[in-house]
Nucleic acid binder design. Sequence first.
DNA 1: AAGTAGTTTAGAATGATTTTAAAGTAATTT
DNA 2: AAATTACTTTAAAATCATTCTAAACTACTT
Lengths: 132, 132
Amino acid sequence: MNSKKKLRKAGLRATKQRIVVADILFNGQHRHFTAEDLQSEIIKIGKHMSLATIYNCLKSFRDLGVIKQVESLSETAVFDTNVEYHHHFMNEETGELIDIKPSEINLSKLPKIPEGYSQSGLDVIIKLRKNS
Amino acid sequence: MNSKKKLRKAGLRATKQRIVVADILFNGQHRHFTAEDLQSEIIKIGKHMSLATIYNCLKSFRDLGVIKQVESLSETAVFDTNVEYHHHFMNEETGELIDIKPSEINLSKLPKIPEGYSQSGLDVIIKLRKNS
DNA sequence: AAGTAGTTTAGAATGATTTTAAAGTAATTT
DNA sequence: AAATTACTTTAAAATCATTCTAAACTACTT
């Protein structure tokens, strides 16, 4: 099934722009990218698309669940007076953080570190939603 | 030891502004805060301090190691075509991400979720640095 | 008390993202 | 196939967090 049909099926208008983005993204291989990465690629294949459109498109694809936005704790810099190694709970709505002591998490198995690199940190973030 | 002495000992000039910030931050209780949170508190106690100064001050305290900047993946939005639950390696210098399959991490013990909340997500980020 | 080097500051600059509102277009209806 | 309508795209302006600039200031040294 081509991108046009998939978009229609998902309830989105099959605009030229969305088709271009879908054709780039869903080629079978997973990838991480920013809005600007995508714009560069679009330019590389001789097309043009405004950044606003790219943001709009990525947002609708994300809401549809066909891509994921990688979690970032907050869009503003957050500081912590606790300088010991620890993890965090994060309230998804407010961004509020609560410390988690390392002893409360057991990370008994970790993946092999890629060749040529060393581990320089490890963060666990448990996201919370208020019960309704 | 008061803030003035502590700053001097750390090799930082004991400016009025740094003393105010240190007095607010190092009162024995840990906390998470943004530059603006801090400015609001400073205004609340009848003082004034420019945001640039607050950023400068937090940066020097961070470099000194007396506060920590909570990790954020990247300052720009990153998207991922892999919508399955998974974790990430992150190259600290470039921000580049590599997927980690959940089966490669064993999280056998997790902390108790705070009263009134439910877990809505869990992310593990392993930071990498290139070997020298 | 004077010197100097690090600091503070307002305001400008930057960079990512969103908004605005006008022009365009996909899908529907005629 | 043309007309309609509602959703989209877009350039440009706006916004927000953060950094930079460069002039005024001040902590510490001499």
